[in-house]
């Protein structure tokens, strides 16, 4: 496996467009198709937004977001790390069918992002690495 790209940006919403450009670049190198590229960008965007809003801003913290992409013959692995509050998306309750069929008038707004992450990438996992949160996204190639 080889590291193809890294990117470090401030943990603020202004960084979301740079993160999106980065994801599109590595997806192009990995030869993902348009749909897979969109889904990976969506998943990374959702997690980056959670890091920025929950991990940093709401916790009264500031810090960077570190992205790294690794490529091998069968898959593209993208990792995002941050030093914000401990935030494990895996612990967020998976949205149940009853929620997804609720009308918008009665909906709570939380949980949609993580739901989209899990629905968009081939594999997703969270781990704690020292003082960092690490979110890992995997897309299979040659689909």
């Amino acid at each position: 496996m080889r590291v193809i790209e890294t990117l470090t940006v401030p943990g603020t919403v202004d960084s979301l467009s740079k993160i999106a450009e980065y994801v599109k670049q590595v997806a192009t190198i990995a030869e993902l198709n348009h749909k897979a590229t969109y889904k990976l960008r969506l998943a990374v965007d959702e997690i980056a937004t959670n890091i920025i809003t929950h991990g940093y801003a709401e916790a009264g913290l500031t810090g960077e977001i570190y992205l790294r992409a690794d490529l091998d013959n069968s898959r593209l692995t993208l990792a995002i790390e941050d030093t914000g509050a401990i935030y494990n998306p895996d612990e967020k309750a998976v949205l149940q069918h009853e929620y997804l069929s609720q009308t918008l008038e009665t909906r709570e707004a939380g949980g949609l992002g993580v739901h989209l992450v899990l629905a968009s990438v081939d594999e997703f996992r969270y781990e704690r690495a020292g003082d960092r949160n690490r979110n890992i996204f995997i897309m299979h190639r040659n689909q």
């Binding site: 009308t103 918008l104 909906r107 707004a109 949609l112 992002g113 989209l116």
Partner: peptide
Amino acid sequence: SSAGLRVLIFSKQ
């Protein structure tokens, strides 16, 4: 992204 979905919920409410 879901940020757009949240505005849809906001609109309806």
